[in-house]
């Protein structure tokens, strides 16, 4: 028998009260599925118009009028609001952070520029501010940690700092420290203080039981040797014919070092 049906029947008889988080996840799964279906049928319609040889203007106009994204953004926002401050809001905010920018950008050239990214940015800010102490915040921490380029390194670091200061879960704190320190690696504008903090973060993760400990050690090498303005560490290895050479053999020339593969 369908377990959902069984659960539903049990609910009718007042036997089980749904745990709030579980129910919220059910709702969001249904909402996400509904969104995927709507996007698929919308894209199919666009493809039909193209096959029918409609003009680019006509197709764009149809896209603007019919894109489902905006409605869904509003629905996910409503979900986040309904559960504001509770763990149940987290998956709604994650969806908004990951999809709002793309969803609304897709909906049109005619949409207000800037509006979409701000919805997504706001979702990330809310997530890390209101849910800093939650043990459900791990995925948000990882994702935000990779967003230094879009949100700005300094902003991402301060968002992660609130998790580091407030979260009682050691594993999550280590994840957040690793993420905070990693933003410095791609950020040419990171201050000297931020770089020092990154070193301390990586050292702490390295000394912890975190599964990231081994990677932290590699990150320390990158932080101290592979940043812009540093002399590149030498490479000594064989070329593809088995002849040994060094990167420093090319001192005196401008060098592009290209990590590549034929795939």
């Amino acid at each position: 028998m369908n377990p959902r049906l069984l659960f539903g029947a049990a609910l009718c008889f007042g036997l089980v009260a749904p745990p709030p988080l579980l129910r919220a996840q059910d709702d969001i799964a249904a909402l996400e599925k509904e969104y995927q279906t709507a996007v698929a049928s919308f894209q199919a319609k666009l493809a039909e118009l193209r096959t029918a040889g409609k003009s680019r203007e006509e197709i764009a106009a149809f896209g603007q009028a019919n894109n489902p994204a905006k409605d869904f953004v509003a629905r996910f926002q409503a979900g986040a609001k309904a559960h504001a401050g509770q763990d149940a809001a987290i998956p709604y905010l994650l969806w908004l952070g990951q999809n709002a920018a793309r969803a609304v950008a897709m909906s049109a050239a005619g949409g207000a520029p800037g509006a979409a990214p701000s919805i997504a940015d706001e979702a990330w800010v809310t997530l890390l501010r209101d849910h800093a102490a939650s043990d459900q915040i791990g995925r948000a921490v990882q994702t935000v940690g990779r967003m230094g380029r879009t949100l700005g390194g300094e902003k991402v670091r301060s968002m992660l700092t609130s998790v580091i200061e407030k979260n009682p879960n050691e594993a999550i704190v280590m994840e957040a420290r690793f993420a905070r320190a990693s933003t410095v690696l791609g950020d040419e504008e990171a201050s000297a203080e931020a770089r020092e903090m990154a070193k301390a973060d990586f050292e702490a993760v390295k000394a912890s039981k975190s599964p990231l400990a081994a990677r932290a050690e590699g990150q320390i090498f990158i932080l101290e040797n592979l940043q812009i303005g540093m002399t590149a560490p030498d490479i000594e290895a064989n070329d593809l014919d088995g002849v040994a050479f060094k990167l420093s053999d090319y001192r005196g020339k401008v060098v592009v070092l290209d990590f590549w593969g034929d795939w």
Binding site: L226, Q227, I228, G229, M230, T231, A232, L247, S248, R251, G252, K253, V254, V255, V256, L257, D258, F259, W260, G261
Partner: peptide, 12 residues
């Protein structure tokens, strides 16, 4: 691919 560009002194 990942690219690093070094000047003639070997600085990244």
């Amino acid at each position: 691919p990942t690219i690093y560009v070094m000047d003639h002194k070997g600085v990244i």
